[in-house]
Simulated scan of single mutants.
Amino acid sequence: MTATANAWLKKIQWDEHGLVPVIAQEAASGDILMFAWMNREALARTVELGEAVYWSRSRKKLWHKGEESGHTQKVLEIRLDCDDDVVLLKIEQAGGIACHTGRHSCFFQKFEGEEWHAVEPVLQDPETIYTKTKKTP
């Protein structure tokens, strides 16, 4: 990318770590599926591929959503909030599962009676989702 080709990235208010928070919203249902982070490279790759690519803070590397599970996120629209510091992806979720717990959404816990309760079912056992990436000793 040339300097002019990525000038749009300069509008974003990146945090002190060079990251911006990202919300993934299912376009068809309006459900908020997950929250993640992107750096400049992740957002540029997302635009290039048309699929969500995030920055994994724990692994300290780019993470193409669905690279292990197959549950990719096709990006239909990218929006920036009024303060230029939060990105919203309107996506189409492959397989209907966005969460590594096997649920549709990462926001499956609801606060009720001073406790958190899981209110969305596991659609697929995570063990079966990630078995292809596990290596035997």
Rank of each mutant, 00 (worst) to 15 (best):
F107S: 05
T131C: 05
T72N: 10
R79W: 12
H64D: 04
S69F: 03
T133G: 03
G113I: 03
H104N: 15
K134D: 02
K90P: 09
W55F: 11
R79G: 12
C82P: 06
D83F: 08
I129E: 03
D83E: 14
A52M: 09
K65R: 05
I91Y: 13
T131H: 11
E114S: 15
I129N: 01
K110R: 14
V86N: 13
I97E: 10
C99K: 10
L33S: 00
E127H: 07
L43C: 12
E77M: 07
K74V: 08
N39R: 01
L49Q: 05
V47Q: 11
W116L: 15
L43R: 05
L80P: 13
E115F: 00
W55H: 11
A94E: 14
A118P: 09
F108R: 03
L43T: 11
H100P: 13
G102V: 09
R57C: 04
L76F: 07
S105K: 09
I32K: 00
V87W: 09
A118M: 03
A36N: 00
T46E: 01
M38K: 01
K65V: 06
D83W: 04
E51P: 04
A52N: 06
V122S: 05
Q93F: 06
P126N: 02
L123P: 09
H64K: 13
I32C: 00
F111S: 12
L76A: 07
K74M: 01
F111K: 15
I129T: 01
S105H: 07
W63N: 03
E41V: 01
Y130W: 12
G70S: 12
Y130K: 02
E51S: 10
M34K: 05
N39P: 02
G96Y: 13
Q93A: 12
W63V: 12
I129Q: 05
H104W: 04
R79V: 08
L49H: 08
G70M: 05
G113S: 09
P121Q: 07
M38G: 00
L33D: 00
K74L: 12
H104F: 02
E68F: 04
N39L: 00
R45T: 04
E120S: 13
Q73L: 09
E114D: 15
I78G: 14
E120K: 13
V87K: 10
R40K: 10
T72D: 03
K134W: 06
I32E: 00
S105W: 03
M38W: 02
F35H: 04
G66H: 09
G113D: 13
L49N: 12
W55Q: 02
P126G: 09
C82G: 12
T72M: 04
R45H: 02
H71A: 06
K90T: 05
H117V: 15
R40S: 07
H117G: 01
V53Y: 01
T133H: 02
Q73I: 00
D125R: 11
L76S: 08
Q124M: 10
K60P: 03
T131Q: 11
M38Q: 05
C82N: 11
K65F: 03
S105R: 11
G70K: 07
C99E: 07
E92T: 12
F35W: 01
G96Q: 14
R103T: 14
M34D: 01
C99G: 14
K60N: 15
L88E: 14
D125E: 14
W37K: 03
Y54G: 05
G66E: 11
C106S: 04
